[in-house]
Structures are given as C-alpha cells and as structure tokens.
Simulated assay, not measured.
Amino acid sequence: MEVLPFKLPKSEKDALIYQEDTGVAFYEQLHQHEEMQISYIVKGLGTLIVGDNISVFNENDILVIGENLPHVFRTDYDLSTNAEMLTLFFTKTSFGKDFSTE
C-alpha cells in the first residue's frame, strides 16, 4: 500500500492545528505528515494501522502518533451513527526550542 505524503494547511504563525472529523468514516488513506498528533475518539471504532503495528480503536481512546509515521484509521461503518474524532497537530518546535529534548 502506498503512503501518501500529507501537508496540513497552516500558516507559519500557527503552532497548533485543531481538527474535528465527523462522518461515516475518518480519512482512510494511508498517509504521513511531519506533525505529531493527539487524537481523541469521541464516537466510532475500527482498526488503526501505524507503521507496522495494527490495533483497534474505540470510543474514548486517546491516540498519540509520532511525526512522519505512516498511519490510517479504518472505521467500522455503522450508517446509523457518525464517527467523531478530535485531533491536535503540532511539531517539535510548536512550543519553542526548549520543549523538545533534541
């Protein structure tokens, strides 16, 4: 499966990006981006692939995905309810040079 490079739309002044995903499914293309992400699953369940790891995600899970890691959320479809995920994206420099240990 090909990994799609993904560029999050943001200005150079933006330190953080907040995104709400609501629908039958989340973004279901294997992709990677330079930002780390913390995602909270409000509603929905499915399979999460990160790198070479496959696991299940459920409602109320908090997921942390590192920078440039290929990943995809494969939502189990239930047309009677929408899936919902809240995500915060950031880079190592988002909080200043002293935040990162590098």
Rank of each mutant, 00 (worst) to 15 (best):
M1E: 13
E2L: 12
V3F: 06
V3K: 07
L4N: 04
S11V: 00
L16E: 02
E20V: 09
V24C: 03
V24D: 11
F26R: 08
Y27N: 10
Q29C: 04
Q29R: 12
H31N: 11
H31F: 07
Q32C: 09
Q32F: 03
E35T: 10
I38P: 05
S39P: 06
S39E: 03
S39I: 07
I41G: 14
V42A: 07
K43V: 00
K43T: 02
L48K: 06
I49L: 15
V50C: 01
G51W: 02
D52G: 01
N53P: 00
N53A: 07
I54M: 09
S55R: 09
F57D: 00
F57S: 07
F57E: 03
E59L: 01
N60I: 02
N60L: 04
N60Q: 08
N60E: 13
I62T: 11
L63G: 03
I65K: 02
E67T: 15
L69D: 03
V72P: 00
D76H: 13
S80Y: 05
S80M: 09
S80K: 15
T81D: 10
N82T: 11
N82M: 09
M85T: 02
M85S: 02
L86V: 05
L88I: 15
L88Y: 10
F89K: 04
F89T: 06
F89R: 03
T91D: 08
K97N: 14
D98V: 13
T101S: 15
